[in-house]
Every structure is written in C-alpha cells, then in structure tokens.
C-alpha cells in the first residue's frame, strides 16, 4: 500500500474509534448510574474504542512522517481490474443469495453455479451448465435428504 493509503487507513480507524467513544457507545449501551466501571456494560467497549483511536492515530501519524520525498519516485499504480473481477464475483454471489428464497434451492443454485463457473473460468457456458445441474442436485440430496437440513423453497411459485 502507498503511504497515503496507510495514512488514510489510520485516519479511518481513528475516526471509527472517536465515533464509537462519543456517539455509538453513549447512545447504544445503557448504563445505570449505580453501575461502576467493573460492572458497567460500556466499560470494555470504551477500552476498544480508545484502542481504535490510539492505533489509528499512531498508524496515520507514523506513515505521514515516514512518507517518501517527491524525488523518491512515483508510487505504484493500483490494480483496479483485479478488484473489479472480485467485486463482480461477489455480486454474482449476492444475486444468488437474493434468488434463493424466490426461485427455491435447485433453480437458484443451478443459475448461481453456472454463472460463477462461467465468470471465473471464462470458458463455454455449456460446460458451466453441465457442471452446475448435477452438482446442484447432489447438494440438494446431501443437505435435504442425508443431513435433513431445510433448504430455501420457492417464494414466487413454490
């Protein structure tokens, strides 16, 4: 990571700590007046919040102080296309999770598996489908029959 990225990471952690300490913990954890530190439910979360502040602040300051001079050369470029592939794979996974309760387990799994195999492999769609159908049936048999696990059923026409 570049020094800017590192400093930004530190800053985000520092701000998260401050948000926790001054906003989230006072609002989201009710502490009775009689609850001293050792029995207060907010005691440990406060320690966590201040650790965030310390670590994030320290990390940001360290990387700002250690930044290379302009003469030291350009910083490495980011690998955005790789990140986009990962996000696309996650989007397929999210679409699969969305379709599960609507289409039911078997159709959604065939679609999800075929889409993911096709996207990751970049080969033929028929190869992906030929793998997806038997594997989805195998999973259904394994989970529903052998292990007795309830699988999502179709909400639209099930």
């Amino acid at each position: 990571m570049t020094w800017r990225g590192e400093a930004l990471l530190g800053l985000v952690v520092l701000l998260a700590g401050l948000w926790l300490a001054f906003l989230a913990i006072p609002q989201e954890i009710r502490v009775a007046a009689s609850q001293t530190n050792e029995i207060s439910p907010a005691f440990f979360p406060r320690i966590v919040a201040w650790l965030f502040v310390l670590i994030g602040g320290g990390h940001a300051i360290f990387h700002v102080l250690q930044r290379p001079s302009a003469a030291a050369g350009a910083e490495p470029k980011k690998r955005l296309p790789g990140g986009l592939h990962a996000l696309a794979a996650l989007a397929i996974g999210a679409a699969y999770a969305t379709l599960l309760p609507r289409l039911g387990f078997l159709p959604a799994t065939v679609l999800g598996l075929a889409a993911l195999t096709f996207y990751l492999g970049g080969g033929s769609i028929w190869r992906a489908v030929l793998f997806a159908i038997p594997f989805a049936v195998l999973l259904q048999e394994l989970f529903a029959r052998l292990l007795g696990t309830p699988l999502p059923r179709a909400g639209w026409w099930g």
Binding site: G83, H85, A86, L87, A89, L90, Y119, L120, G121, G122
Partner: peptide, 10 residues
Amino acid sequence: ILLLAEDRPL
C-alpha cells in the same frame, strides 16, 4: 475466492 477471482480466467 474473491482474491483468486482477481486473476480470472482461472
């Protein structure tokens, strides 16, 4: 899986 997906086609 997401990390490996960066290098698609696998």
